[in-house]
Nucleic acid binder design. Sequence first.
DNA 1: TAATGAATGCAACCGTAGTGCATTTAATGT
DNA 2: ACATTAAATGCACTACGGTTGCATTCATTA
Lengths: 138, 138
Amino acid sequence: MTDIEKTLENKSVRPTAMRILIYKYLAEKDSAVALTDIENAFEKAERTTLYRTLKTFEEKGIVHQIDDGTNISKFALCEPGCNCEIDQDLHLHFHCTHCDKTVCLTEHKIPHINLPSGYIAEDVNLVIKGICDTCSKH
Amino acid sequence: MTDIEKTLENKSVRPTAMRILIYKYLAEKDSAVALTDIENAFEKAERTTLYRTLKTFEEKGIVHQIDDGTNISKFALCEPGCNCEIDQDLHLHFHCTHCDKTVCLTEHKIPHINLPSGYIAEDVNLVIKGICDTCSKH
DNA sequence: TAATGAATGCAACCGTAGTGCATTTAATGT
DNA sequence: ACATTAAATGCACTACGGTTGCATTCATTA
């Protein structure tokens, strides 16, 4: 059994062939991917399958969904320190308007925000848009 | 000439009847509105007109677009202190998952974030999801 | 090996975003 | 006041992401 299969089983996700492929794809990407990205990468794959696989991955804490302001949902593998829950130090995301890539800045945590009374926070999302390091060199 | 007409002209936007109506609608709302919201409010209005009006308003700094994670663009009037640009203290947004409303917390500014070298920030977006004060009372 | 449930494939549907073009409306100069 | 010109609006249509229902295949286990 490979590492990926173990990882999936640890998260109570049956390691099917398709899921392993999708996991691999996510793992080798250094930026967040949209459903369409995966669809294009695996021409034989069915949109619905990818869609539901990502949903499952998200529910089981394998990936986290990123809303980078493009109105297109992106996904990235959760790293060991990636706590996608409140009351944790959540990392922020950077969306490059030049190459259109979105990356997790896992080193950068979102500072705590004091809300007005009555407001209950359940999730925090911080996205910075601009030019990434690769694009700013050119 | 009314106040709204003056406001629009100050921003180099021709104060047409439709635009004044849309501005009024936005002004009396205490939460951000989606294109569809306006569409429903003015049954006679053409979606394209509303769409382009909001675009124009945004370009001219009359409204700011809000991405609250629902994948539906929302808009809210810019207040005098609402600087929708970088290097300013940007306010954050709160999206209530119960009543589905998104509000500007203009009193709450986004703290400055230090990015890794090479990254150039142009826009910052902070959205907190949870339960708003109205819904948390019930 | 049969039974069971999960995963996948297929075929749609819905809603938002966006564009091209014709038409109307408003502003300007003569 | 009228013609000219540009902006604003209305209409039709496309594109695409997200989503669901249902049939079918696959894998697990009794």
